Amino acid sequence: MSPCGWAFRLSEVLDVGVVVLGQDRRIDFANRRARRLLDVGSDTELEQAWIRIQPELAPLFDRAVPGASSPVEGSVPTGPSPEAAALRIQVYVIDEDEYSGHLLLLKNADRADAIDASLRHATRNRNLGPLYRDHAHDLKGAMNVIAMNVELLARRNDGDSSQSDMTVRSAVVRRELNRLDRTLDVVLNSHPVERESPQVYDLGLLCRSLFELVAPRASRQHVRLDLALPSGRLDLDGFPDRIHDALLNLLVTSLDAMTEGGTLKVTVERSTAARVYVCHTGPGLEADKLSELWCLHDSSKARGTGVGLYVTRMIVEAHGGRISYGPGPSGDSCFIVELPSPQPHSDL
């Protein structure tokens, strides 16, 4: 079956626009959904629309490579008007014996953004649920200690406690109240406010808050946490709530791999790009799984959804960054996130 033939078959079952380009980057096939998204009817209108948006796609074509496990993605306007709808376009390279060119998948950008937001929220809730249970156990333990010491303090009226004993019990209650306060702060800060526009945020502070969030689970699994941050602030431009979700996915994935203990180390480096190394001593991925690591619905876990790492890649690339997986400096398994253009500190 020719590429245009299988593209037609594919387009009949998927609610996306499908465009096949030849080696000359001219349209060989466009399904009905693609024509509706481009707001064209005839082949002549289709060619004119393609000539209009092709320059916007040039950077995507430059980045697309054969055999990539994930597409190159970007958004382009459908027309010159500021009110024109935008399209989310994914670019795949076709490099087969019988055909060479590109496959483009088109979606309405607003609709695609809404779907991405739903995936982010679902992944966040899936990650936070078990972590909240671990924090709830900590809260319950603190409350039990407070209740016991309050009961002992109450006996002072009966003359059963010395002044020194009362001082010790009071200190214990104050300590546990502080512990409660810290735990509640961690829980409250674990669900960052969604931002409508980018802002400057401190990547080091964000990583520190994530470590506090996963600390109870790491303790329960006998996993040692190690955080290495550069001195001073490391300010980046972006959406801190989304970067929070992306890095939390990596931490949870790493903890999932260390059910019998180990070490989880996060190293943040300041360079031409900010780099975050999330390394763990659990089992690594098999080589035949690496090509599908970032694909939607692909998971090596028995009950995994295959959404977490896909969402992580989506968030990192939307920030102009890159993510990879491989052996770390000590031979352990390591996710490497690169985020561009660390900014000098400025007050918003």
Score class of each variant (00 low, 15 high):
Thr267Gln: 10
Leu225His: 06
Gly306Met: 08
Gln23Asn: 11
Arg111Leu: 09
Met148Ala: 14
Leu38Pro: 13
Pro329Arg: 12
Asp185Phe: 07
Val150Pro: 03
Ile243Thr: 14
Glu260Thr: 10
Tyr310Lys: 05
Leu46Cys: 14
Asp97Trp: 09
Pro327Ile: 00
Asp185Val: 10
Glu212Trp: 08
Asp347Lys: 05
Leu213Lys: 02
Asp15Leu: 04
Glu196Asp: 15
Leu227His: 04
Val316Phe: 08
Leu60Cys: 06
Asp185Ser: 11
Asp202His: 00
Arg242Gln: 14
Ile146Ser: 05
Arg126Gly: 10
Arg32Ser: 15
Asp332Tyr: 07
Ser162Asp: 12
Ala58Gly: 01
Thr281Ile: 04
Leu250Lys: 05
Ser197Val: 09
Gly204Met: 02
Gly328Phe: 02
Leu227Cys: 07
Ala147Val: 05
Ser300Val: 15
Leu203Ala: 13
Pro71Asn: 03
His280Ser: 07
His222Tyr: 13
Gly141Ala: 11
Ile323Leu: 14
Leu60Ile: 04
Thr267Pro: 01
Lys107Glu: 15
Val19Cys: 05
Glu98Pro: 02
Arg120Cys: 11
Val72Cys: 09
Glu196Met: 07
Asp113Pro: 00
Glu151Gly: 15
His102Cys: 06
Leu348Ser: 11
Asn149Tyr: 13
Val16Glu: 15
Ser197Asn: 05
Glu45Ala: 15
Asp226Tyr: 09
Pro230Leu: 01
Pro59Asp: 13
Ile115Val: 15
Ser42Pro: 14
Val20Asp: 11
Phe211His: 10
Ser81Thr: 11
Asp160Met: 12
Ser2His: 12
Leu205Glu: 10
Ala318Thr: 06
Arg32Gly: 12
His319Tyr: 01
His244Gln: 12
Leu60Lys: 03
Leu247His: 02
Gly326Leu: 04
Arg175Lys: 11
Gln54Cys: 03
